[in-house]
């Protein structure tokens, strides 16, 4: 746990150094993105040691929430009472719940448990980067606004940016590297996107439970293999 916290704090500090040159919106997106990635890499394997244990999941959410509150309040001008800070915290926890549920389902479905964290991290990076790698296609094929909106909604960054109340696709970096800033689009509604993530999370959770009752999982085996992924951190 200390390793996890350390990893988050170090990456957040690095972002803070870069943050001297960037706007509050960019800081919030970078910090929340960093916390999300750190939680995925470091904390989800811990929760996956025993996907049936609710206490592991709750600890994961609690840890993400506390880290988010402390890091953002420490590194940005936002106070602990800021509604934006609390929105981001709740949103990040929801994202972690969803990712944990997806990871739990994958753990149940696949025999190769070692790679679950890798797949979840890849899934996160690919969806987060949708505006970057799909950007050229958007312009090349003159896509409709509804399709553009769907692409933007796919990225968890859009959700985090909406929570931070920041038009990130018109921020300097994304404006330079994607065509979205010059196109017409709407960001996803926070409530609808939250509902989508919650639905995905619940669906994965219940599917995993259904499968688990049909084919009990060797939790000890999963625990052993998860620990082998995180060997360095658990030393």
């Amino acid at each position: 746990m200390l390793t996890a916290l350390g990893a988050i704090l170090i990456s957040a500090s690095m972002i803070h150094l870069a943050g001297e040159f960037i706007t509050l919106g960019e800081q919030l997106l970078l910090l929340s993105g960093c916390i999300l990635l750190s939680s995925t890499i470091v904390l989800i394997p811990y929760a996956m040691e025993d996907p049936t244990k609710l206490s592991h999941q709750l600890l994961l959410i609690l840890c993400t929430g506390i880290c988010t509150l402390l890091i953002i309040a420490w590194l940005t001008p936002l106070s602990l009472l800021s509604p934006i800070l609390w929105r981001i915290t709740v949103g990040l926890c929801l994202l972690i719940v969803t990712l944990t549920a997806v990871a739990g389902l994958l753990t149940q479905l696949t025999d190769n448990h070692n790679s679950i964290t890798l797949w979840i991290t890849l899934l996160l990076l690919i969806t987060a980067g949708t505006p970057i790698w799909l950007g050229p296609a958007v312009e090349l094929f003159y896509l409709e606004q509804s399709t553009i909106n769907a692409i933007i909604t796919t990225s968890p960054l859009s959700y985090l940016a909406a929570l931070a109340d920041w038009d990130y696709l018109r921020g300097e970096w994304f404006y330079r590297h994607t065509p979205f800033g010059g196109l017409r689009f709407d960001y996803p509604s926070i409530s609808i996107t939250s509902l989508i993530y919650l639905t995905i999370g619940l669906a994965c959770h219940y599917i995993r439970r259904i499968i688990a009752t049909e084919k009990p999982v060797d939790n000890i085996c999963i625990k052993h293999q998860s620990l082998s992924i995180l060997g360095v951190m658990h030393k």
Binding site: T23, L24, G25, D165, W166, D167, R170, G171, E172, Y175
Partner: peptide, 8 residues
């Protein structure tokens, strides 16, 4: 002046 918030 930017688009209307915190942006560049």
């Amino acid at each position: 002046i930017g688009y209307g918030g915190d942006e560049r």
